[in-house]
Design a protein around this nucleic acid. Structure first.
Lengths: 337, 337
DNA sequence: AATAGTAATGACAACGTTGTCATTACTATT
DNA sequence: AATAGTAATGACAACGTTGTCATTACTATT
């Protein structure tokens, strides 16, 4: 491997001068600079980032953490888009991305000391994750792509407006005359799921109805779960005329489950998804869903982190709720009479 | 930050002895070890990986490279699964994963010197990618999840059996009486696409027919592209009775395009996808497709790389073709007469 | 009792950088 | 002509580890 020493020897200057040329940190005579630059490209010198990090204590690396208990997210189309947003922003800022699949019992804060990451982005932290301990106390830069507790808390985060999104969805169904709506919310231990439920409750009670707890189902974000539960719901007396889903994968499973149970979508049962994944347009029928801008979410998370890394901790936490939009396609219709 | 020096001072031994306790590299008396271990956990010491890397020249980090021209892959459901396979294997081996979104004109080989990665995994390298220069020459560990040229070459790779997969698909369609099959192969500059075309050609000629070049279409891996092209194909005289797709996203778009053009799937036109993404079961109708084990592909790539990193370069390149299976669901039927 | 062998430990250099301070050789000012 | 200021450069220490070699204090063997 070519080092500063090699370049220095070959160009007849000191190591420090080569360092100056590489970093542009101080005046170097034009003549010397040219000579050194020539040698650098001849020898193919590239600075060793390990040595640099050791000296200046920064690694130009950002850790993206996938909590152990959130392994499901890895197979979710939503994940790609958030990660893409993050990766592009980091790449544009010459920052490295360390994708960290958390072990069962390793505190996330260790990455700051051990891997010398300059900041952390958390993908989807469930409530009460014990490995979070030490992260906030350390005051090191970190940003969450989700809320970690429902109430106010001093963390920095970007999150979709799950409450508002579900309110929109419920209002849409009310306007179509639906009264009995099932909610397949998602895994119970996620704040985003709890917020979906909150939005559902708020909209239902605002319309003067009481929430029937039996209509709220906590199931995995998967087509299988949606499929199975939808089929099962149709065997009950007085089944729902509409099904709200925590994500589009579920919704697509639900549509098929309903069809297998002999129900037409949307004439017999309406279905609404959440996310608006790229395939939502292409389901049959095309899916009515709540759109969230997952790519933008990733970008904002990375941009926020970079700001924290360069400008230091801000006084008040950065907390942004990204609005969602109801995209009406063909899986919702007037409630059957 | 707590260093070896701090631990050494607090426990009254030399730095080197603490290092021995941390690494278990030599005999340390039980008494000393206990004392040092106590101090380590009291102070919360964690070794600085930068310093370690500087000394031993290894970073315990593997770079996963997404070539600049293959940015599309980031939004593909296929990507998640490969990455998940890689990430899990690396995590189990205590290796870090550096996700590297390549810049336009930066040779990938720089990561070896600059970031001191111990190995590289390439996600989807298009033919003739100039940034590949230096990677093979460097003899540093690297594994491709795809072939980089069609013929034999000395690289290590795992790849799905695209040729065999398409042969299976074509044979299936022949057995149903189809004669005019369109192939929406994918982007022309990918070897995997060229191999799909090869399999298609082989199966067609084996059945005594000549390949009509107009039936081969190079389009993006996207539902939109599939949708648009399918619709368009149906406006032509003598349209195909079956459409083979390079991936499932396309196929799902194709199904909708056909339905919009007033064709029933599979009664009027049969459709076959590739990948068997998790949603394939839940399309309407459920998609007949070629299954490939993308998760396993990621695992094998990572396992192979680790072997190269630990045992050194093997004499003959490791090259594995993962078999594919035709999954017959409901989008293929007897050709209309 | 002398010697050889081993377990346990420490001193010091090295990895490849950057930061601090010193030195040299100018140029501009009085 | 003396002085001050600045541009250009280098020597050396430091970042936190690990590797090499040396030293000490034993124990086992002759």
């Amino acid at each position: 491997m070519v080092t500063l020493k090699d370049v220095a020897r070959a160009s007849g200057v000191s190591i420090k001068t080569v360092s100056r040329v590489v970093n542009g940190t101080a005046e170097v005579s034009a003549e010397t600079r040219q000579r050194v630059e020539g040698v650098i490209s001849d020898l193919g010198y590239h600075p060793n980032t390990m040595a640099r990090s050791l000296v200046n204590g920064r690694s130009n690396t950002v850790g993206v953490i996938i909590p152990h208990s959130a392994g499901y997210i890895f197979s979710h189309p939503f994940f790609n888009e958030v990660l893409r947003g993050i990766a592009e922003v980091l790449a544009n800022n010459n920052l490295n991305l360390l994708l960290h699949l958390a072990h069962q019992n390793t505190p996330y804060a260790q990455l700051y000391n051990q891997r010398r990451v300059d900041g952390l982005i958390f993908m989807s932290v469930p409530t009460g994750d014990p490995n979070l301990e030490g992260v906030l106390e350390s005051k090191s830069p970190c940003v969450f792509t989700c809320r970690i507790v429902e109430e106010n808390n001093p963390t920095h985060w970007v999150d979709a407006d799950f409450v508002g999104g579900l309110e929109q969805a419920v209002e849409h169904l009310f306007s179509l005359g639906h009264q009995r709506m099932a909610l397949l919310a998602g895994p119970r231990n996620l704040i985003s799921v709890q917020l979906r439920v909150k939005g559902y409750r708020q909209a239902v009670t605002r319309n003067g109805l009481t929430v029937d707890e039996d209509n709220i189902h906590y199931v995995d974000f998967s087509s299988e779960a949606g499929h199975d539960l939808a089929f099962q719901l149709m065997t009950k007396p007085n089944p729902p005329t509409a099904i709200l889903c925590g994500d589009d994968m579920m919704a697509i499973g639900v549509i098929q489950g309903l069809q297998e149970a002999g129900r037409r979508v949307p004439q017999d049962v309406s279905v609404i998804g959440f996310d608006d994944i790229s395939l939502a347009r292409f389901s049959a029928p095309p899916l009515t869903t709540i759109h969230q801008d997952t790519y933008r979410k990733g970008q904002i998370a990375a941009e926020t982190l970079i700001r924290l890394m360069t400008k230091g901790n801000e006084n008040s936490p950065f907390q942004q709720i990204l609005s969602t939009q109801l995209i009406i396609r063909n899986t919702t219709a007037l409630a059957p009479r």
